[in-house]
Amino acid sequence: MKNFVGFVVLVVIGVMLLLVVQEMPTFGDINNPVHNEVAERYLEDAVKDTGALNAVSAIITDYRAFDTLGEITVLLTAIAALLAVLRS
């Protein structure tokens, strides 16, 4: 009985997930919502906004600098954990 209920729940969830997948935008379509004006703006205005010729640098240390702060925190945490574990 318990197995049957679990089976039914899994089937219902699976059908719902498949229905959602049907609604997803086509991969790589030019009209997808992700292809909006943000990427264009970064590429066109990066030099004017940040003064950096390298658009990747402009994004990771200016537009998305807070994300890079998180990456630095990951490094700091890794080294703190390492020193805590390995230092005899």
Binding site: L53, N54, S57, A58, I60
Partner: peptide, 10 residues
């Protein structure tokens, strides 16, 4: 040259 050419801090 991280802000001029490919590369950067990492």
């Amino acid at each position: 040259h991280g802000h001029l050419s490919p590369g950067g801090g990492f």
